[in-house]
Simulated assay, not measured.
Amino acid sequence: MAKKPKLTQRQKRQVAANRKRRLNDKQDTLSAASADTSSLQSGTVVGRFGKHADVEDASGQVARCHIRRTIESVVCGDHVLFDAPDEQQEGVSGVIEIVKDRQSVLTRPDFYDGVKPIAANIDQIIIVSAVMPSLSLNIIDRYIVACEDIGITPVIVLNKVELMDEATLSETRQQLADYESLGYAVYFTSCKTQQGIETLNGILKDKVSIFVGQSGVGKSSIINQVLPDAQELVGAISDNSGLGQHTTTAAKLLHLPAGGDLIDSPGVREFGLWHLPVERVTWGFIEFRDFLGGCKFRDCKHLNDPGCLIREATEMGKISPARYASYHKILTSMEENRPSHSGPF
């Protein structure tokens, strides 16, 4: 019987480190399992950055907390049980022990970390677009597919309407009418003239919302309209927890004056769909659903395949040609952007 090769000193150190990590993880698991939850407080994660999170309790006090290593992820909007300090202290003074079940979770694909959660317990996603820099219906469709995939209601907002003349506005309304016919809410806003801002406040009231959209469409301007003291509130959270934040990289949850919460996270600046199976993207186009499973071939690509019900429905005017073309544009983009097998995955 051949002898096993001797381990090098480096390999021995690695084995010892792995054994120590497994023992620590086991101890953490036992500690979490045996924790007396009656001694823990309920709270909501209102800030997440690095290895720590800010948790707000029922009284509005914010404690900066460590995150138990056995917890897979913590994001803004999470409802948690945490071990709070006996008295309000500066610095990292609490520990998140348990993350409660999420009602919903918004995720994005990452080339190196797989699918990453970026916000939890969201009621609606506000898709902000504008004619400047340019109105992209395909990007709106991408966001809608992401919403449909995770079951979060999308709301479409066309901002900067003051930049459009009557002809452009009429054309744009006609383009967005396809979405209204599908049951999606569409609103027109202007931060300069205040058009639609009061209506938007009503939409946000008593809900947890998150804004998405291209750079330059005015997301920050709208946030400043519905939450005029946003920067001051971010600073107040930092002061309350005793530590500052890097606001350009930190995710945060802010309370709206009229009721409801707004999650502002860098993670929503880009939305890829390449992690989704093609079938989920097809399902994300809700007008396709009545025809799914009825095509002649099970592997129908819904393009030039004979007996394709979706293509036929488009030719008959039952499906918008623009949406049909957008669907195939999304699939092409997914294939181009999908990581190769030799990549990080």
Rank of each mutant, 00 (worst) to 15 (best):
D206M: 03
Q194G: 11
D178A: 13
S170W: 00
E171D: 10
G216P: 01
N224K: 11
D239H: 04
V212K: 02
I197T: 07
Y184H: 11
L163A: 08
S221T: 12
L169N: 07
D229R: 13
T193A: 08
D229A: 15
A230E: 11
L163V: 05
S238N: 10
L158F: 01
G202L: 11
D239M: 10
K207I: 02
E166F: 02
L169C: 04
A230F: 04
S181H: 15
S215G: 06
E232F: 05
E171R: 00
T168C: 03
A236T: 12
L176D: 11
S215N: 06
Q174L: 06
L169E: 11
T189M: 07
V157M: 10
T153S: 02
V186R: 06
I197W: 03
T168G: 01
D239I: 06
I197R: 05
K160R: 08
A167L: 07
A236W: 02
L227M: 07
T189A: 14
S221L: 13
Q174F: 07
A177P: 01
F211W: 10
V226Y: 06
K160W: 05
L233D: 04
V226T: 12
V212G: 02
T189H: 05
A185L: 14
V217L: 13
G196N: 04
G218L: 15
S181E: 15
L233W: 01
I152G: 04
S170C: 00
G235Y: 03
T172S: 03
I203S: 09
V212L: 03
V226R: 04
E162Y: 01
F188A: 08
A167P: 00
A167C: 07
S215I: 08
S181W: 15
S170H: 00
G235M: 09
S170E: 00
S190W: 04
G213V: 14
V208T: 12
T168Q: 10
G202T: 12
V217E: 13
Y184K: 06
E180Y: 01
S209F: 03
S221V: 12
K219D: 12
I203F: 04
T172I: 02
A177F: 04
Q174V: 04
P154T: 10
T172L: 01
D178P: 00
R173M: 09
E232M: 09
Q225M: 13
Q225D: 12
V226N: 08
L169Y: 02
A177V: 07
A185T: 15
Y187T: 12
V161N: 01
K192I: 15
F211V: 05
L204K: 03
A185D: 13
T153G: 05
N224P: 02
M164S: 08
E166W: 01
T193H: 11
K160Q: 14
K192G: 08
D178L: 08
L233Y: 03
V226E: 10
C191S: 15
G235D: 14
E162S: 04
Q175E: 14
A236C: 01
M164V: 03
K207W: 01
